[in-house]
Structures are given as structure tokens and as C-alpha cells.
Design a protein around this nucleic acid. Sequence first.
DNA 1: CCATACCCTGCAACCGGTTGCATGTCAACA
DNA 2: TGTTGACATGCAACCGGTTGCAGGGTATGG
Lengths: 332, 332
Amino acid sequence: MSSKSRVPTISEIAKRAGVARSSVSRAFTRPELLSATTVLRIKRVAEELGYVPNSSARALSTGKTGNIAFLVPDVANPYFPPMIRSAQLAAENLDYCVFLADFEESGVKEEKLIERFAGKVEGVILISSRMPEERLQGLADKIPIVLVNRDVSGIPRVLIDAGASLKQAVRLLAHQGHQEIAYLSGPSVTWTNKQRQAAISEVTNELGLRLVIIPTEKPSLESGQAVVDQMINSGVTGAIAFNDLIAHGIMTELNSRSFSVPDSFSIVGCDNSISPFTNPPLTSVSNETTEAGKIACEMIMGVLGEMNTKNDQIKVLETLLIERETIGPPCK
Amino acid sequence: MSSKSRVPTISEIAKRAGVARSSVSRAFTRPELLSATTVLRIKRVAEELGYVPNSSARALSTGKTGNIAFLVPDVANPYFPPMIRSAQLAAENLDYCVFLADFEESGVKEEKLIERFAGKVEGVILISSRMPEERLQGLADKIPIVLVNRDVSGIPRVLIDAGASLKQAVRLLAHQGHQEIAYLSGPSVTWTNKQRQAAISEVTNELGLRLVIIPTEKPSLESGQAVVDQMINSGVTGAIAFNDLIAHGIMTELNSRSFSVPDSFSIVGCDNSISPFTNPPLTSVSNETTEAGKIACEMIMGVLGEMNTKNDQIKVLETLLIERETIGPPCK
DNA sequence: CCATACCCTGCAACCGGTTGCATGTCAACA
DNA sequence: TGTTGACATGCAACCGGTTGCAGGGTATGG
């Protein structure tokens, strides 16, 4: 017993409706070229038979697949899902479908994925790309690319600039009396990390604070937990983490050692991904990831429209420091 | 200046290599049919020209797109990303690409999405489907479907059965002395919710506890916060939530009213999605979502292999109650 | 030295749409 | 009533691969 009833083709619809194949095609793509009655008849037959245009065939003759790819370093990082969702929604509204892939924080895997997708999509959105700049530029010659949180000239990009908010956080810490603070850094190759670290470093210099940089293995809870000793030993009284996950790892670990936040330690997160849920609620930097996803999507659609023109637009999104309850005066 | 250099086709490779188009095709798909030297020559030319097979064309003639779709009710719900990632990884290993879409907890949108994907994929994986059973069966006739956390006979499915662990949680509460507990229920149409509620209800009956069911708007933090009053007024001393998000909303809200957990209230979550990160750490039910994603993916590949045969396999995954620090004796 | 078989390669049709061009019809206008 | 043009539809080529079949070449065995 065959399940999976075969879908009819344009030819069958044409025969049944007594018209040419081209008319069936036009009934769906350019109905204004046909008489209203013909369109109606064709559509009725199509409906009856459950016709659905074969998108491979369509893609082959038009050259447009109606797909884009969305590549992220780690789907499970709560920073990304809202962005994924908004991009997908935006794409959907333009009748595009989106492939999602996780390149596991690896530039090599990232490139492999792009190559695999190359033939299937009209463009790709890369989040926090790890690829070297020149390869990125090479790829951008072959397929439309939009970058999020990566700054490569000549490739359209949307950047979320947490700099101002992080500087504000540092000032807040200084104002409370902190003299020595740590930055728990994120993946060193990323634009995001470099940019955040630079902003913090700039203002600590300006204020004459001591800044100690503590690298973490991954922007995850566990990596945060793993560097707590190092942080404590460094003598700092407050810390700003690359993201909420790391900050929360720190808090958890501090907590299990009977340090309390903010009484013994002040902590600031970034991204506002899980900070509203922590206990105490984490002071963090809120950024418009949702907006970023949407814009990236619109941007790539724009690029598709005007192919072959050098496109170098850049959109910067501002952030906001959300003060909650993890900053206090220094302990010692 | 044209960026986006056009990719060469099989014909150009053929001409350059001095062979027929079919040989080029075979060099990539069935190289054992050609002499080693010919294959080598073709591949070298292809490499030189940067040839990449056009996947629309390939899909058109073979009927295989090499894509699957993965539909979830809400990407941003932390329950799903690990599943998404594992499914995608599994697909990738079999050279498949995966479309991701979010149907926003709506059966209607879900169906629209399936229709849109129908022509582009070989099969679709539906997570916590909201569609009515008969439509699901109708669709399953047209396109291979695998269900996760939805039990419809005739459609292959993988179910995560938290029943045993939830019963264990109820017993634990009873053992601590709780007589009246609440179940903060999830989306009422879902299999997952029905099944969890049934398990809890069964054991509360058995133990002679009073069970009050409190519906929530959505399985989210905010919905949890919103029902706290109702929960307190109901007179219960402990609660089991449909998922960690709701449980955490409860905890947050309880906390802001100076109720402490577990001293004033006992709370149990489910899914182990954010429970390790809460403060205090939430007792929850861990389920193998990662495994589920992988299995679902393998299942659909299996279905693709043996089309047209009625397929009714079902895989049930067990869960584990993770005891942390949110259960204590009743307060009043 | 010839027959047989196997190996390699080419030919051409096909997958299911889209689209430029040609054709036919009919109404409007002179 | 004849001409013109707009409108509706059909024809056939094309998109870029895949694949069944046929034919030529070479090796093998008699």
C-alpha cells in the first residue's frame, strides 16, 4: 500500500484543465497575463489535485532558491535563539525559508558549512563569524553574506556595540569604590570580545583602575565557574563578564563558597540573556538581538535585490545597561 | 564591477576536460564507473574552475533535496536548542541540511509551515505538534513525518516520558509531609502536558493527596510569575511545574514576596533546562532531549529509505529526577 | 587469429518548472 | 468594412544535473 501519494506536476494540471503547461505556470506566477476565467479554472483543478509547485524545478529555472542560511556559533547559547527567531520570522514574511546550522565556535566548520549551503541558498547570515578576514572576503565574492557582530569592510554587517554600556558599568563600579576589577573575557578571536575588552580597558585606564583580564575557555556557565579561583586570587573586588553565562557561573561558584553577591563581590554580565532570572538578578547589558536578527535578514534581502554592486552598509545597534542587584561597594 | 563570480556548470567542465557531460556527472556521483585517470582529470578541471554541483538541478533529476525541516513551538524556549543542535548534527553527518522554523505554539501556523516546506524537504520533524490528529495523518500521507513528544498512531514518533520521574517527585513531596500540591500545567493541547498531568494525578490519587491544577498561559517565566497568587491562595504547600521556566517564574515571584524556597514552599521543575542555574538549584526532571533530537533525525532517515511502507515505530525515552535544593517539609 | 565479454564513455531523454516569441482572436477605430 | 493593436494562449527552448542504453575499444580465452 503506497502511502506518500505523488504530487501532480504542471503537465497533469495542464492536461486536466485543457491548457498549455505555460498557462499553468503563469496562473501561479503571473496571473495578470491570463484571463480571469482561465486562472480560476486552472487554480480549481490544481486545488482539486493538490498541486504544489516543485521548488527544485522552479529554483533551477529561475535561479532563486528562496532560501537563506543562518549560521551561529552555538545554538544552545541563550543569546542566539531570539535572534534566530526574529530572523526567521522576517524571512518568512518575504517567503523565504531558513537553514540553521551550528558551527560550534569553529571557523573551519563554519567554512565547511558555508560551502555546503552555497548551492542551496541565495545568501548567508553569519553570526559572530570565526573565519579569517580574507577567507570571508573570498567567500563574499561568491555568495551574498551579511555579518552580525563581525566587522569586515566590504561586507554588509550589523554590529551590536555594548561599549558605552560597559563603560557605564565600569564607572558605576568605580563610583562604588572599586579600584581593581576583572574582565572575564570571551572567545578571543571574536569581534565582540575584542570590542568589549577595548571599551572596558579604555575607561579603566582613564579612571586609573587596575584591570585584570581573565580568559575563559568558552562563553559558558562552566567556564565561568572554572575561573573563580583565579579571579579571587587576583585580588579584584568586582568583575565584568563577557556574557551572562560566564557571570552566572561566577555567581553560582561564589555562592557555593559562601561568598555573597553583591556583598562580597560585584558582578556585571552582558547580553541580558539570563540575567533577569538569576538570583540575585544580575546587572547586565541589554542588547537588541531580536532587532539585529531582523535587520540582518532585511539586509541580505536588500543585497539579493541589487546584486553585483559593491555593498558596504553597516548598522550599529546601541545597548542599555540594566542595573539590577549585583553591584555594591567593595568588600575588603 | 561584478562581484559574485558565476559558478561553472557541468557543461563547461566537460568541454574543458574534453569529455561528455555525463562523465562529469559520474565523476562525482559514481566515479567507479569511470577510469581513474578520467576521474582525476575531471576533478582537477572542476577544482580549477571552482565547480560546485547545482543542487536544485540535482534535486530535480534525482527527486532528493537532501534537506529536512525541523519545526519547534518556540526556539527561544531553552528546552529546544539542545534538541535542535543534536538533530542538526546528526543530519549533517548524513549530508543533509536542516531548515528550522518556529510555529509559535500555533497549530495553524505549524500547518502552513509544513506546506511551505513540503516541496523543499524530504521529511519533517515536528516537535510537540499542536495540529489535530487527523490533519497530521493527512499530511503524513504526503510527506514523511516524525513526531517528537506527540503520540499519533501510524506516525513514527519519539516520546520523552517524564511520568515515572514526576511520580517520584510527588512521592518525595508526600514523604516530606506535603498533603496538598499544585500542578502548574503547560499548554493544554500538548501530549507532554496531558501525559505529565495524568502521571501526577494518578499518584496523588493513590497517595490520597489533594491536587490542584493551575493552568498557565504559556510555558514561560512570566506565566509562572502570573499565577503565584492563585497558587498561594489555593493553600498548597508545594508545586510541580510543567517546566523549569514556569517553576523559575514561581521562584522569582515568591522570592520577591519574601517567601523562601524551600522553606516556605517546595518547588519541582521539569526538563532540567535552566534548573542547574537557578538559586537555589531547582529540583527537576532531566530528559534526554539531545538524544531525542538525534533519534528523531535517524528515524526520519530510516523512513526515507523505506518509503511507502507503513511505518509505526515508536521510541520512548526515560527520564531522571534530579534532586537539588527546592524540596523541603511543608511550612504551615 | 577470431569470438566473447567487459570496461569505459558518449548520446539523448528526462526531471518540472519558466519565459521569449509567435500566433490567433476580437474589439475599437477610421 | 478594413486595419490596428491589445490581449490571451500556445510552442519550444532552457535551467543543470542524472541515467538507461548503445557502441567502441581492449583484453582474454579458445
